[in-house]
Design a protein around this nucleic acid. Structure first.
Length: 308
DNA sequence: AAGGGCTGCAACCGCCCTCTA
DNA sequence: CTAGAGGGCGGTTGCAGCCCT
């Protein structure tokens, strides 16, 4: 026999998440850690599908998520990785530690696709030289000959594989000295959840600001969320986050976010965090050196990098 | 000022692979 | 071994806000 049903579809609430729901979800994960999503609606009383809970956590509440505009470096990385992997957004997002696959996907569909299309059009018209610096960096890619491009793709896969191997080896070392690293892992996880609490705190701050403004807007999540995406309007919330002070409304018990490292031991989030910590700097440095190198390396140089 | 079209993005849908009983 | 749920992921949609006429 299989598993019991995930959730009762008839009772499932859909649509934008409210701050209260975010708080309930965040509180649950702070206590139990992410995973076992089936238990989330039952335990918290959230009228949400377990899938929806997981999505909300991974895309918005998860600690360390960066909101707002993509940098030029991120943009280049996405373009490069999209050429390499295709529309495998989760894979691409794994190289951008602060971005979610949904964010990357949306950014590609709404910005980069158009940008590249524009570049291609200009290229066809022989006016590619007139595009901006950002665009021209993107335009350089299609200019590669087929053979050269394939060589790059091939070498890149090897580079990525090597970086991953290094990362995993580093992680093994960390696991090897478990007793010494246990406290570090817990403190890292604690910081992770602190970041989560900040996320929710800032979210609520934005929500309250909206509520008290003279022109209250809708309760759509993007409204309260957009207030802390790095714009000037979020300065108060950012300041609160920077000082480590929650700005939770009084009706919501901020003590539910007191961080208890005992709850974090054995959590899969700890594993996730340590994995990410070692993986990304290595990959980023590799890709940075690749992406920002204006000089065209010889095929031999690429090959030598790839097969060491 | 109004309203119609466009844009950006949060969230849902559905497929597929993995895992469990 | 098998059925079926869980979880991951890419595609798509719906809607609020913005822009343009």
């Amino acid at each position: 026999m299989g598993r019991p049903p995930c959730c009762d579809q008839a009772d499932v609430k859909k649509g934008p998440w409210t701050p209260e729901e975010d708080l309930m979800l965040g509180s649950y994960i702070q206590q139990h850690g992410p995973g076992n999503w089936k238990a989330v609606p039952a335990t918290t009383g959230l009228m949400r599908c377990s899938k929806s809970c997981r999505l909300r956590w991974t895309n918005y509440l998860r600690p360390g998520i960066k909101r707002g505009n993509f940098t030029e470096q991120e943009e280049r990385l996405i373009v490069h990785l999209q050429a390499l992997f295709g529309n495998r957004w989760a894979t691409i997002a794994s190289y951008l530690p602060e971005r979610t696959d949904n964010d990357v996907k949306n950014y590609w569909n709404t910005h980069l696709k158009k940008k590249l299309k524009k570049i291609q059009t200009l290229d066809r018209e022989g006016t590619a030289g007139a595009v901006t610096a950002a665009c021209s960096s993107l335009a350089s890619q299609p200019a590669l000959s087929k053979g050269r491009w394939e060589t790059r793709v091939r070498s890149d896969i090897h580079m990525a594989k090597r970086a991953l191997d290094e990362a995993l080896a580093l992680q093994d070392k960390t696991v090897g000295s478990a007793s010494a690293s246990a406290s570090a892992s817990v403190s890292a996880a604690t910081a992770t959840y602190a970041s989560s609490a900040e996320n929710i705190s800032r979210l609520l701050q934005g929500w309250m600001e909206n509520k008290t403004s003279s022109l209250p807007k809708t309760t759509r999540s993007s409204n309260y969320y957009s207030t802390f995406t790095g714009t000037a309007s979020s300065s108060a919330a950012a300041a609160a986050a920077a000082t480590g002070k929650n700005s939770l409304p009084s009706a919501m018990d901020s003590s539910s976010f007191n961080l208890d490292s005992r709850n974090l031991e054995g959590s899969s989030e700890t594993d996730h965090l340590s994995h990410g910590d070692v993986k990304f700097p290595i990959l980023n440095s590799l890709f940075e050196s690749w992406l920002f190198d204006e000089e065209e390396e010889s095929v031999e140089e690429i090959e030598s990098l790839a097969y060491v």
